[in-house]
Every structure is written in structure tokens, then in C-alpha cells.
């Protein structure tokens, strides 16, 4: 079981996940890839081999109104190949999470077309890096609305129309408010797309009333043998959060504190909750876990340290060449 971290790096100052500049500053995939090399060096230092790439790696590359950005992949073929070789050398599993506007099941054709273009771009990036089929693009159903059966039909039809190269990269995640695990299982039955189990979404949206071991077993069984399943884990936020809103009295923006909504990710991870999740896995096959905590790499390092201290039997399942959790002690 590899633990992964999503995109941003907090533990090493100066590291960016991609070129974040605005269009006027001409951000470029080649700069993102240089950032990525730096991130890989950091991942090696903290002994992490599972990482979620920024979906904006090629900035504005599918933006319909910015055609100057559309040929970045062609310009960076050699750099993509080189970064992919580095990832393979370090044994890093790289994945994408498609942006929220990617909704294959949307009833709006413009949204569905843009979704397809975005998925083709992400696929081309992974293919350009020469990465294997464990390097997936996670998507949601989206566009469920009041007619889930229609959304499911649209999603499976759109999936079938995708190029084979894209279909082989996709993995479908159930949602905290919308498509439950039962719904995405119907989609899997129709088209074979593997399912990403998300612990927090399962807690929030489980109309099937499946137990945790049942739900995890169902998701794991959707992955063909030879491929490593992927799961998401996060703890729910329980602390106050600061939000900026328009003040109805003054019309000015102001910050205030509010209680967290269900589904908000916590900064860090509850080790005992993670232990329960890991122990509920059927144990018949290995899987990787993407940790969706706001403190990203800091949360991963803290969790590893907590597991070593409080749940060594779970920590033993996580491959580690060193004890990098000590870095932060």
C-alpha cells in the first residue's frame, strides 16, 4: 500500500506543482515540467512514490479562447519523455484528477465536448511521459440532476465514444452528493471502467447501506488483475474555517468564521480512522491510497509517523526505505 499526496507541496519552500502564471505572463508546459522535476526530487527525499499531477500542467491548453496555448504538447515532446523516464526510474505512480468542469454525463453538449477535449489532453500528457495504465485519470459522473438513469446512459455512451487511449486511462469515483458507489457500479457494469473508492464520500453518501469492507471489496473488484487499484482517504474537517463573503449590510468583502460543511477535508488525517479503513480492506490484493488532506505532504508525513507510533501493524503495510517521518520531528 503506497500513500500518495495530491499536487501541492508545503514542506519544501519554492516548489510549485505547475506554472501558475496568468495567460498574460505566458505560462508554459515546459516550465511546469521543470517544476515537476523539482517535485520528484522532493518526493525521493521523503520516500513517496505516488503523486497526483496538477490538471493544469499544460496551462490553458484546451481553453477555447486562447489558441496560442494549444500546441504546448507538441513543443514539449522531448521534455515529457524525459520527465516520464525520471518518474519510471523513481517508481512514481502519477495520476490526474480531472477538473470539476469535466462531466461526461452532462446533458449540455458543449460541456461534454469540453470534457472530452480535457480528457484527451490529460491522456496525451500521460502517454507522452510513457507511463503505464496504473497512471489513471480520475473522473466523476457529473450532471446527475433529477434523472440519474439518463446521466448514467449519457456517461456510458460518452465513454464508449472516447478514443481507446483515453478509455484505458479513466477511473470513476463516486461522489459525496450525487452518484453513490451503487450508481457508479452500474456504470462499471455497463462499460467496465474501474472504480475509485473514496472513504469520505462513502461515509457521506451510502444509500446502499453497504458496510465498509463490502464497499471496499466492491470497488477493488472492478480493477482488472495486473493493475493496482487506487483509493482516496481523507478525514472530515471539524474545526472552524475562515471564509470571505460579501457583507449584505456594507456590500464589502469580509472574512468570517463558519462551521465546516460535511465533506470538507481536514488539514491532517486521523490515524485511527485511517487504521480502521486500512484494516477493513479485504486483503486479497494490494492498492494505493491518495491522501486528500489540505496539508498534503505534511499530512502524509504526519500520518506515517502517527501510524508507526500508534498502529505499527498498519504502518508495516506501507513500504518505506527510510523513516522520513523523523524529518519533521
Amino acid at each position: 500500500m503506497r500513500l500518495g499526496l495530491p499536487t501541492r507541496i508545503l514542506g519544501r519552500r519554492g516548489l510549485r506543482a505547475y506554472d501558475t502564471r496568468r495567460p498574460t505572463s505566458a505560462p508554459h508546459l515546459s516550465v511546469s515540467l521543470a517544476h515537476l522535476r523539482d517535485v520528484f526530487a522532493y518526493l525521493a527525499a521523503i520516500d513517496v512514490t505516488f503523486y497526483r499531477l496538477a490538471s493544469d500542467l499544460a496551462p490553458f491548453a484546451t481553453h477555447p479562447e486562447l489558441p496560442d496555448f494549444h500546441d504546448q504538447l507538441d513543443q514539449c515532446a522531448a521534455e515529457l519523455d524525459s520527465v516520464g523516464a525520471l518518474a519510471r526510474k523513481q517508481g512514481i505512480r502519477l495520476t490526474f484528477h480531472a477538473p470539476l468542469h469535466v462531466q461526461l454525463g452532462s446533458a449540455e453538449s458543449a460541456v461534454a465536448q469540453r470534457s472530452r477535449a480535457e480528457l484527451e489532453l490529460l491522456t496525451a500528457l500521460l502517454d507522452g511521459m510513457g507511463l503505464d495504465e496504473d497512471c489513471v485519470i480520475v473522473v466523476h459522473v457529473g450532471g446527475m440532476g433529477a434523472a440519474p438513469d439518463s446521466a448514467i446512459s449519457r456517461w456510458t455512451a460518452a465513454f464508449d465514444r472516447l478514443p481507446d487511449t483515453v478509455r484505458r486511462r479513466l477511473a470513476l469515483e463516486h461522489e459525496d452528493d450525487g452518484a453513490s458507489l451503487g450508481v457508479v457500479l452500474r456504470i462499471h457494469a455497463a462499460c467496465g471502467v474501474p472504480l475509485v473508492f473514496d472513504y469520505l464520500h462513502y461515509r457521506l453518501n451510502n444509500p446502499e447501506r453497504w458496510s465498509l469492507p463490502e464497499a471496499m471489496a466492491v470497488a477493488l473488484a472492478t480493477w482488472p488483475y495486473g493493475r493496482t487499484p487506487k483509493m482516496h482517504f481523507s478525514s472530515p474537517r471539524t474545526e472552524l474555517r475562515a471564509v470571505e463573503r460579501n457583507d449584505p449590510e456594507t456590500g464589502r468583502r469580509r472574512w468570517s468564521l463558519t462551521a465546516p460543511r460535511p465533506g470538507h477535508h481536514a488539514d491532517f488525517l486521523n490515524p485511527w480512522e485511517f487504521g480502521g479503513f486500512a484494516e477493513a480492506a479485504p486483503g486479497v490484493r494490494d492498492f494505493d491510497v491518495m491522501l486528500e488532506a489540505k496539508a498534503s505532504d505534511l499530512a502524509l508525513l504526519r500520518l506515517r509517523g502517527d501510524l508507526e507510533r500508534y498502529m505499527p501493524e498498519v504502518a508495516a503495510w506501507i513500504p518505506s526505505r527510510s523513516r522520513p517521518s523523523e524529518v519533521l520531528e
Binding site: L10, R12, S256, L328
Partner: peptide
């Protein structure tokens, strides 16, 4: 030259950042 001091500061204070920012904020529920 940068030092790594901000990382250690962040690490020490991250869990408390929310509370430390509450001094000038109201709470909404």
C-alpha cells in the same frame, strides 16, 4: 539565500493557524 525556517514555522503553527486568525473575525453559523 533562503533558509528552511519558514517550513519549521509552518509545521509548528499549521494546526493552530485557524485559531490564531480568529482575533479579528466574527463567527457565522
Amino acid at each position: 539565500w533562503q533558509t528552511d525556517e519558514e517550513r519549521s514555522v509552518l509545521w509548528q503553527h499549521f494546526p493552530n493557524l485557524a485559531l490564531k486568525t480568529t482575533k479579528r473575525l466574527s463567527i457565522e453559523e
